[in-house]
């Protein structure tokens, strides 16, 4: 008897709140969001986690739109994906993109027990949901009759107006708190240029500028380490962030399949040849150089004629 009533209620609900194509989009978005969420907690790089969180949030925005909450869908995209996540990425860039989580467990067996606890918690939640008499959704057709935004505004500025005003106080407090916390009080005077220079020489390191990337290399790209006179690539010439991301020492490996040492040897030989050519700069070699290369400068041209 009760089952028949519930079934009838479900049927009525489905008829009242039917949207064509909803199951397809629900399953698509559900699968994508769960996979992205799982990837988020298993990725070692924090940036990858942030991008996967963006995926989850966009999926949830689409689900809100399906569920008759277009205003929340847009707020989700603008506030969460646009503002909050960009703030996360901003802080990630300040902290360092290349930082990865250590896999050392400080509490023994923590991951195992966390996994077991998560499975137990999920079982508890699903069991609770399964036992609840959820029925079927009534649908928002009546509530959204004047439009979702108008309906929300009516509630927000009538029933929830006090909470809304309290929210403004919260936002001001948060902005002030962020300013106070992120502001750094300078306890020591700012070092002058002279002091910085003295510190650079006193440390005994490289007082001059570091070698530039791509010096004596085949490309002048920033991830191409400079070749030192003995042919070894200099890691100092590449930004540490780029050096941490890729193995820059193998960058000199040629695309044609030669080994790294061969390519470096060829590069060094080419450099030596050019240097020797420039060294014995007799009249003949200079003339030969001028004949070979039409791009010779006008200065050398007038010199040769004179």
């Amino acid at each position: 008897m009760t089952r028949a009533i519930t079934a009838a209620g479900v049927l009525a609900g489905q008829v009242a709140d039917k949207q064509s194509g909803e199951p397809f989009f629900f399953w698509l978005l559900a699968i994508v969001s769960v996979l992205a969420a799982l990837g988020m907690i298993f990725m070692r790089r924090a940036v990858h986690s942030a991008l996967l969180l963006a995926t989850v949030m966009l999926c949830l925005a689409a689900l809100y739109a399906i569920e008759g909450a277009p205003f929340l869908a847009f707020v989700q995209v603008i506030v969460y994906t646009g503002a909050v996540l960009m703030l996360f990425l901003f802080v990630l860039m300040l902290v360092g993109v290349s930082s990865t989580d250590s896999l050392v467990e400080t509490i023994r067996g923590q991951r195992l027990w966390a996994g077991i606890a998560a499975i137990g918690f999920l079982a508890l939640l699903v069991a609770g949901l399964g036992n609840a008499a959820l029925g079927d959704s009534a649908g928002l057709a009546k509530a959204n009759a004047d439009g979702n935004v108008i309906g929300l505004a009516r509630l927000l500025f009538k029933d929830y107006v006090f909470a809304f005003e309290a929210t403004s106080a919260l936002l001001i407090t948060a902005a002030l708190g962020a300013m106070v916390l992120a502001h750094r009080e300078r306890t020591t005077p700012k070092p002058t240029q002279r002091e910085l220079s003295q510190r650079r020489f006193a440390s005994g390191g490289d007082p001059g500028p570091l070698p530039i990337s791509g010096t004596y290399a085949r490309h002048n790209a920033v991830d191409m380490p400079a070749l030192l006179p003995d042919g070894s690539p200099s890691e100092l010439s590449v930004s540490p962030v780029i050096a941490a991301r890729t193995d820059t020492s193998v960058r000199h490996t040629d695309l044609e399949g030669a080994s790294e040492t061969d390519v470096i040897a060829a590069d060094v030989a080419a450099v030596r040849r050019t240097t020797e050519d420039a060294a014995d700069a007799g009249d003949e070699s200079r003339a030969a150089y001028k004949a070979a290369g039409p791009a010779a400068g006008p200065a050398t041209g007038t010199e040769g004629e004179a």
Binding site: D17, E67, S137, A138, L152, L155
Partner: peptide, 10 residues
Amino acid sequence: VSFARMHGNL
């Protein structure tokens, strides 16, 4: 949001 849709109010 799901509960809002289920109960038919905002």
